[in-house]
Amino acid sequence: MRLRGTRPTRRGLQVACDTAARLRPCGQSGLQGSVADLVPGPGRLLIDVRAAGVQVAESALFRGESFGWHQPSALPHVPGSEVAGDVIAVGSGVEEIWVGRRVVASLEGGGGYAELAVADAGAAHPVPDGLGYAVAVAMLTTGASALGVLPVAALTPDGTVFVMSAAGGMCALFVQAALRVGAKVVGAAGEEKTRLVSGLGADTVVDTPPTGGPKACAARSVSASSSTASGGFSRPPNGDGPIAVRTRCPCGRCGA
């Protein structure tokens, strides 16, 4: 549903109102609300949102819980830190050539779960022709994180890579990256996700027990001796054997 009285197409044109998903304090009804007068300031873009990303951290923030260094925002709040869509207006200092471009962008302070969003021009990236909005926004943070981790692995055609949580966003990219260089891939995932991992092309797929059980924690702990919150690679101490790729154990209790 669109509640805009005016559709902006050039610099400085105001929007009458914009529909957004707003988190409200308990006792206040309604998830959908209106945000008035979205205007791109200097160096910023106004984006007609076609797809918004959903991060693991945001799912915790929705419940009013902290996630790592992320803390819940004061309510009411429009969540959403990633969007893809069309630029429909620009602020001062931004070239008019941006208007009409398909872009993906990171947002500071949320605001992505709305029909319109404002982003810094420096945080926006053109979306290639043929790439859908949903795929583009899904790749924004996950893809960048994966690209940051992959050089550490130094993948080779004669290597074997063991990927935990292989159906997840980053780890699905790890599976594909390892296969692209010719390495053998063993992917572990829950029963309902093994078909996805097989579809990615993994040479072997391991069905792990349900998340949170002792066996699940044990299965994840064999892959590496250290990890980061966003995932990482590790090698055996002597440098031989398979490379392990893992993310933090989702049970949240064992510390793996």
Rank of each mutant, 00 (worst) to 15 (best):
R7M: 14
R7S: 07
P8G: 07
T9M: 07
R11Y: 06
G12F: 04
Q14R: 15
A16F: 05
A20F: 01
A21H: 01
L23E: 05
R24M: 13
R24T: 09
P25K: 14
S29G: 14
L31W: 09
Q32T: 14
Q32V: 15
G33T: 11
S34P: 09
V35C: 05
V39R: 08
V39L: 12
P40Q: 05
G43S: 08
R44I: 12
A51L: 03
A52L: 04
A52D: 05
G53C: 04
V56W: 08
A57E: 11
L61S: 03
S66K: 11
S66P: 14
G68V: 13
H70P: 03
P72R: 06
A74F: 07
L75T: 11
P76W: 09
P79Q: 03
G80M: 02
S81N: 10
E82K: 00
A84H: 01
A84F: 04
V87N: 10
A89D: 12
V90N: 01
G91Q: 08
G91A: 11
S92F: 02
E96I: 06
I97G: 12
W98P: 05
G100N: 07
V103Y: 02
V104F: 00
V104E: 01
V104H: 00
G110C: 06
A114H: 00
A114V: 01
L116C: 03
A117G: 00
A117H: 07
D120G: 15
A123M: 13
P126M: 05
V127N: 04
D129N: 12
G130K: 10
G132H: 09
G132E: 13
Y133L: 06
A134F: 04
A136P: 04
M139W: 05
T141P: 00
T142Q: 11
A144D: 06
G148L: 05
V152F: 09
A153V: 06
T156R: 15
G159E: 10
T160L: 03
T160A: 06
V161W: 04
F162E: 03
M170F: 14
C171E: 08
A172I: 08
V175G: 09
A177G: 03
A177P: 01
L179H: 03
R180S: 04
G182V: 02
V185A: 02
A189W: 04
E191K: 12
E192S: 08
T194Y: 02
L200N: 01
V205C: 02
V206D: 03
D207A: 09
P210A: 12
G213T: 14
K215S: 11
A218K: 09
S223K: 04
S223V: 15
A224L: 12
A224D: 05
S225L: 11
S226N: 10
S226V: 14
G232P: 11
F233W: 10
R235L: 09
V245P: 03
V245C: 15
R246K: 13
C249Q: 13
P250Q: 13
G252M: 14
C254D: 08
G255I: 08
